[in-house]
Amino acid sequence: MTPRFHPLTLLAAAAAVLAITTAASSWPVSLMVAAGAVALAAATGSARRVLLAGGAILAPFWLSLLVIHGLFYPEGRTVLLGFGPARVTAEGIGFALDMGLRTSAFVLVTMLFSFSVRVPELVAALNSRRLPPQFGYVLASTLMLAPIIAARLQKVRQAQESRGLVVEKGLRSRLNAIRLQMVPLVLGLVHDAGTRAQALDARGFRRPGPRSSYREVSDSMGQRGFRFCALLLAAAAVVLRIMASYPGGQS
């Protein structure tokens, strides 16, 4: 069981790590952050979900990076392999690896955050800081979109399996199942969103004026201090990066 962190502490930690990783722009740092995110996910028991969700996003991204930059990198000079107009260059591979690792770190940290934070607590914490409730709701809906889609998809799949759909292990069978499930999934989500909007209106979601929060989110001096330091570090990393990019600085 993980210690109960304030949602803004988790948000500040994730944001700081992402800012520092981007500012560092170095593949060893990216690799370390990605590995760290996976290790932390394993320690908190969410490794499977983080890896599955991250994999679904990153696999096609890595593939496109390797195809585009690995084969067609214009600045590539060191040719490792040549296929007519396509050339595998060391520079292209290096660029693809750098971009891929940086994005991997970004995605894995974001996934770890979204699976670790308790969304209603995050919304409550944001509301208590006088942010517009719509902002909190959109953020909550976004973070909860994956579970909502998964739940709706499971319903569609169960309905179809109960009427004879058999999903086998082969790629063809899986693709066929996806084809059968996508339209019902989207239509179902649109239908749900339509009915939910009426309930939200009736329950005063669009009401102007101050809001309150039922859920009390525990905070501490230590966590406030951590958030301050994390954001300070992130800002310092960004400033250093900008300074290094100026003419005369080292990039």
Partner: peptide, 21 residues
């Protein structure tokens, strides 16, 4: 169709309308 969909517990869902006021 009555539920907000973004509350994690029954008590929070009940309180949703009160929070909004």
């Amino acid at each position: 169709a009555m539920l907000s969909g973004v509350r994690g517990t029954v008590e929070e869902e009940l309180a949703f309308g009160l929070e909004n006021r």
